[in-house]
Design a protein around this nucleic acid. Structure first.
Lengths: 209, 209
DNA sequence: CGGCTACTTGAACAGAGTCAACTATGGTGG
DNA sequence: CCACCATAGTTGACTCTGTTCAAGTAGCCG
């Protein structure tokens, strides 16, 4: 199943009876408050799994919006649990997905709660770069980021203006280059230092990509 | 297995080959940065499950510390996956646990990223009160909170001083009463309004308590 | 009676938010 | 072909929320 840029794959509060694995494209998973403040919970990349929550609670409590064209592989909820019974191995895979998702969220919460604006921005950009790299989306040391600074701001919990200034600082520090949609990591060690990066143990297994 | 107050149930970076369900007592799940900044990810209550991540990745990337005496039910990692194969139903339970954990984290990230200090504090206290209520820890409309303001501050991503002032405001607004360890919710509707609370769909099934 | 730890409060400061203006770019229609 | 508009990014000035520093209070335990 394919989604156009800007379309919703999951909608906060609505029932969904499908699960998805993303085959290609970028999306954002986010929650909003009544007054429209938005928190982006995760940038979704190929290999990521969507809808575990709605597989169990019927209604999702977050939305997912496609940033680019997103190709997915769809499982119907009912069929999914049938499969589960036939292949107990699948249960393990599901828990794997859920656990690594949770680790990513843990890290994000640590970031937003404890890191300064500069650290936080560096951390997120580094994380995005590395995840893109794992999925072979980096060409000529360059990734095409399909989002704008407003998206970044909503993921960082910062205002648009401040996000812009912080990115400016990372640029003048010669850590990154970012023109139009093309992003380059100029100094990985420098970024890790600014981001207070801590080594990450668990890459996505090839099977998921 | 029982843990004393202050002892570690899981330790960041160390291997763990057990999973736990909490039977009684309070704990905190947290992550730290190298310079000792700490983010509390969750206040752990009876019925909560610990160690899903370490069940898969061997080393946990967060720590869990007992706040009170904590009684747990322990599963060995190997035995756990054997059980899983015999009872495919268990896979579903595990995914349930993981998904509701993730929902809680999503909400926390939204809070820390988007809510103001006052909103955030109200939200967290309300959440703790409700979760305590579900576990029948509320007696005479009062819960005994086994943590101090520093813990709250580390969960909110605020400084201790500011946390104190914000709690002071909730008190003068007559929304809460909090003396010593005894916490009382005086005006639930008022708290929900301040917290920008949004109805929560999914309580913990009795089976887990 | 000290000496803890937890909590409070005030004052000064800084990091991040808000407001506002300006630039660059690309698309559209006359 | 160009005037017009919308969107995205940039920058400066001012404000305010939340931090830091500092001092003081209250209760508890040996």
């Amino acid at each position: 199943m394919t989604f156009d840029p800007g379309s919703l794959i999951l909608h906060e509060g609505e029932e969904a009876d499908s699960l998805y694995t993303v085959v290609s494209g970028w999306a954002i998973r986010y929650k909003t408050l009544a007054d429209a403040r938005r928190q982006i919970l995760k940038f979704v990349l190929p290999g990521d799994f969507l809808g575990l929550q709605s597989s169990i609670f019927a209604a999702a409590e977050h939305s997912v919006e496609a940033l680019t064209e997103v190709r997915t592989c769809v499982f119907l909820r009912k069929r999914f649990w049938e499969m589960q019974e036939r292949h107990p191995q699948l249960g393990y895979e599901m828990v794997w997905v859920a656990a690594s998702d949770e680790q990513h969220l843990d890290a994000a919460l640590l970031s937003v709660g404890q890191r300064s604006a500069l650290e936080r921005a560096a951390y997120l950009l580094l994380d995005l770069y590395i995840r893109a790299e794992e999925r072979e989306l980096v060409v000529n040391e360059t990734v095409l980021f399909p989002f704008n600074q407003q998206h970044l701001a909503d993921a960082l919990g910062l205002s648009l203006v401040h996000t812009n200034k912080v990115i400016g600082r990372l640029r003048t520090m010669k850590l990154i280059k970012w023109e139009g949609r093309a992003f380059q990591l100029l100094d990985r060690a420098g970024m890790e230092a600014v981001a207070k990066w801590e080594a990450r143990a668990n890459a996505v297994p090839r099977a998921f990509l």
